[in-house]
Amino acid sequence: NKPFKLRKNFVTRKQEAAGIRSKFSNKIPVIIERYEREKFLPPLDKTKFLVPHELTMTQFVTIIRNRMALLPTQAFYLLIDNSGLASMSLTMAQVYKDHQDEDGFLYMTYASQEMFG
């Protein structure tokens, strides 16, 4: 279970993201990976998502929580890589515009705590 960036080199990832954006122009390519030291949240069955650009972060987090069948009491944070938490009212398009990686993907990490130790 290597991180996505270690499974494919930069050129491949960049080409893949560009191809996806041309085929699915209304979707944002998002890579969601579990925090490497996460102990409480289960692994997601999917890593790679194509997300409607108008979906808000709140809606997206809800979808992922439901996918993982989390209890309402279970803490879940979706962090934008290298930037921490994004405002929940932002749309995926806005988050992508501000935080997309050089390869064209948007990277997120999920964890049961909002700050990494």
Binding site: Q15, E16, G19, L50
Partner: peptide, 28 residues
Amino acid sequence: PAATAVAKNVYAVLDLYGRITAVSIVSS
């Protein structure tokens, strides 16, 4: 002739209602 490696990537495609369908992106 050398075989062309074809890789299938599976993406989870979300709609606005939270439904997920799987799409395979074939790349060579």
